[in-house]
Simulated scan of single mutants.
Amino acid sequence: MRIFIHSSLSDLELSMAVGVVVGINNRVNSPELSKIISDVEDDVRKTMSIESLKNDELIRLYRNFYWRLGIDPTKQRPAQEALIRRILKGDGLPRINPLVDIGNVASVKYKVPVGLYDLRKIGQVDYIVLRRAADGELFTPLGSPKMELTRNQIVLATNDGRILHVYPYRDSELTKVDEFTSDVLIIVAGIRNVNDNVLFSALSEIEALCETLLNGKVLTHGLVNNNRSLDFSIKI
Rank of each mutant, 00 (worst) to 15 (best):
D178S: 12
I50L: 15
I154V: 13
A157I: 00
N64M: 14
A133D: 09
F4P: 00
T140N: 12
I37C: 10
G123A: 10
T150N: 13
Q76P: 00
G216A: 14
H221L: 01
G190M: 07
N104H: 04
H6Q: 10
T220L: 07
Y167S: 07
R132N: 02
I236G: 07
P113W: 08
G103T: 03
P78R: 11
D171M: 14
G23H: 09
A106R: 07
V224C: 03
D91Y: 15
V108T: 09
L83E: 10
K235M: 05
F139M: 09
V20Y: 07
P31F: 01
L203C: 08
M1K: 08
F232G: 02
D160E: 05
S172G: 08
Y62M: 02
L116T: 07
N195A: 14
L14P: 02
E32R: 13
K46H: 07
G103L: 01
K235W: 03
R95Y: 07
L185S: 10
L116I: 03
K46A: 15
P31Y: 04
R68Q: 14
L116P: 00
R60E: 14
E137F: 03
E81G: 06
I122H: 10
K111T: 03
L219P: 01
G190L: 02
Q80N: 13
D11H: 15
S15N: 14
D72L: 04
T212K: 15
L213V: 06
I3Y: 06
E81M: 10
M147H: 05
A189M: 10
I206H: 09
Y110W: 11
L138M: 05
P73G: 13
V177S: 01
S34C: 08
R192Q: 09
E13P: 00
T220I: 15
R132E: 03
L219M: 08
A189F: 01
G222K: 06
L58H: 09
N25I: 02
D11M: 06
S30L: 08
I191D: 14
D135I: 00
S233P: 00
L213T: 11
N193G: 02
G216V: 14
M1W: 04
D39C: 01
Y62R: 12
E173N: 12
L174I: 10
N104L: 01
F200S: 04
L149D: 04
T158V: 02
I206T: 03
A106M: 09
L88M: 11
I50Q: 12
I96H: 08
V100R: 03
L99G: 00
S172Q: 09
A79F: 13
V129K: 04
P98W: 11
V184I: 13
L130V: 15
G115C: 01
L53I: 07
E207M: 12
K35C: 03
R95E: 13
Y110R: 07
E41I: 01
